[in-house]
Nucleic acid binder design. Structure first.
Length: 516
RNA sequence: GAUUCCGUAGCUCAGCUGGUAGAGCAAUACACUUUUAAUGUAUGGGCCCUGGGUUCGAGUCCCAGCGGGAUCACCA
């Protein structure tokens, strides 16, 4: 699989072809500016049969994806950044003189699927009705030495699809070349992020960058990656969240800040978790979590329309409606609806009884809040297919959240559930520095008891709060998960260009062993 | 981390109760000037993931390892 393995027959042949091309005096890797003036998409979208006049000096470039050679003429397919277009090459047109080498030798024998070529010519429609570029000349732009999987398609049916997940993720470049839907997914992801950024900027938000390397990994309950700075001789943590830095900026006087934050968590991997992932967090001064729900609805609706032209989006077997407003259900109501138990007034023992009846495993370290969270996670979370705000969480689970203005024991927090999964987590931010210090101290006790996900005390953050933070609402969106929803992708690996995998075993190692 | 399935040609896959490896596409050669999964004829191509074991004999059975998928647990 790696470059040092013994070359396959096809690789040997391509290297020989490369040498023959050089022997013909042709540079297989020209350092050239190639004057492309059209794309496959532009041609397909704009050419109408009979409109030869505006398509007579076309120059396109791309990867050769298929050839149908019929003696003195041939059809081929070119893939550029916008898609495929068919080209037609006639021997006597690209080789008007006696010397037919360019066609007979270079085009027919020495070129391979995967090579980059440039074509000049004009657009016409074939007898079978396909828009095609009739080549008057062609140029080799880059020779390919590695055979590409040949995926064919007819009437929407795909033959010999390049489908092995391991190869697709490890060699994403190949996946992108041969699987058009993969390219489409990542274009959609990009449009989604642009739409969100535009929406935030229109509302006066300021995009900021905060540290990835942190002395204290804060803002979430998770296991961090640890690294080391040599010059300072101190450990650093890769960030698990950027929340505490964004709030420092609210203290500093910005009133609406956001960051697309690459976060890192040293935890398990599966179809919804990658060790590094993207979270959009934003914080808005003088707002509360009710305002944030309305803002979130509008943002999600905007994203759906930008990607699909409608608020109704197919995800798996479900059609999900992003039409605002979304339902709001308190976590207590949700549990009552889906289990029949009213846990609102229960104490820890009562909750343990409920867990036992529902066959939910518990352990001694779990407090009231954690038990409620367990019940919700086991019996309710998966039920919320349509976008729903689950609101008013127990205080124990939310050390950075403001206490509820009306309900004792709860905090002003919501999670946005879509397709049975949490997509966003938001709250009215705790801005009372003394209470924040107490909450941190509770976390410190948990850490002493061996909870490796409990939060560190961040003294600088407390100092910032002591200077005063206005009432603020903040939110974090799981961008990868929203991308999964919006592109109908069942696995996070399908919305990450290079999902994390075990390092590939390299052939070099084997070679070294043989020497030794 | 647990369970389970998978790993055979460049790609997608067959390969039965164990008997020394097959197809389609791709490649190579020839033919063919509007084809489109182009076609026709011929040819070549395999550390059957790795290492042990059982056996006269292992792609196939057993054990261990490596890599991946799915499900579960933790989490976003």
């Amino acid at each position: 699989m790696m470059s040092t393995h013994e070359l396959s027959e096809q690789e040997v042949i391509r290297r020989q072809s490369l040498q023959e091309i050089i022997n013909l005096g042709i540079d297989p890797y020209p350092a050239a500016l190639y004057p492309v003036n059209a794309t496959a998409k532009h041609i397909h979208d704009n050419y109408k049969q009979g409109d030869e006049a505006s398509f007579k000096d076309i120059t396109i470039a791309g990867r050769l994806m298929g050839r149908r050679i019929m003696g003195k003429a041939a059809f081929a397919e070119i893939l550029d950044a916008t898609g495929r277009v068919q080209i037609y090459i006639n021997r006597d047109e690209v080789c008007p003189g006696e010397d037919k080498t360019l066609y007979n030798t270079l085009f027919k024998k020495l070129l391979d699927i995967g090579d980059f070529i440039g074509i000049t010519g004009y657009v016409f429609t074939t007898q079978t009705g396909e828009t095609t570029v009739h080549a008057t000349s062609f140029t080799l732009l880059s020779k390919s030495l590695h055979p590409l999987p040949v995926v064919k398609e007819k009437d929407g049916e795909v033959f010999d699809a390049f489908s092995d997940p391991e190869m697709r993720y490890r060699q994403r470049y190949v996946d992108l070349i041969v699987n058009p839907h993969v390219r489409d997914t990542f274009i959609k992801r990009s449009v989604m992020i642009k739409t969100i950024r535009d929406f935030l900027n229109e509302h006066g938000a300021l995009e900021v960058d905060t540290p990835v390397l942190q002395n204290i990994p804060g803002g979430a309950a998770a296991r961090p990656f640890i690294t080391h700075h040599n010059a300072l001789d101190v450990p650093f943590y890769l960030r698990i969240a950027n929340e505490l830095y964004l709030k420092r900026l609210i203290v500093g006087g910005f009133d609406f800040v956001y960051e697309f934050s690459r976060n890192f968590r040293n935890e398990g991997m599966d179809r919804t978790h990658n060790p590094e992932f993207t979270v959009l967090e934003f914080y808005v001064a003088y707002k509360d979590y009710y305002w944030m729900m309305e803002f979130t609805e509008k943002m999600m609706e905007r994203v759906a329309v930008a990607l699909h032209g409608t608020t109704e989006v197919q995800t798996g077997d479900n059609i999900i409606s992003y039409k605002a407003p979304f339902k709001r259900v308190s976590i207590h109501q949700a549990i009552k609806e889906h289990t029949g138990f009213d846990v609102a007034a229960m104490d820890e023992d009562g909750l343990r009884g409920v867990c036992k009846e529902l066959h939910i495993e518990t352990d001694a370290s779990m407090g009231k809040g954690k038990l409620i969270d367990e019940i919700f996670g086991a019996k309710c979370e998966g039920q919320y297919i349509q976008p729903t705000f689950i609101i008013d969480y127990p205080v124990e689970l939310s050390p950075l959240t403001k206490k509820h203005r009306e309900h004792a024991g709860l905090v002003e927090r919501f999670e946005l559930m879509i397709n049975g999964k949490e997509m966003a987590n938001a709250y009215s931010e705790l801005n009372d520095p003394l209470e924040q210090r107490e909450r941190f101290e509770e976390q410190a006790k948990l850490m002493e008891r061996g909870d490796d996900e409990a939060m560190f005390i961040d003294h600088d953050f407390l100092r910032a709060l002591e200077y005063g933070m206005p009432p603020t609402s903040g939110i974090g969106f799981g961008i990868d998960r929203i991308a999964m929803l919006m592109t109908n992708s069942p696995s996070i690996q399908d919305v990450l260009l290079f999902p994390q995998m075990r390092p590939e075993k390299v052939a070099e190692v084997k070679k070294e062993e043989e020497k030794a």
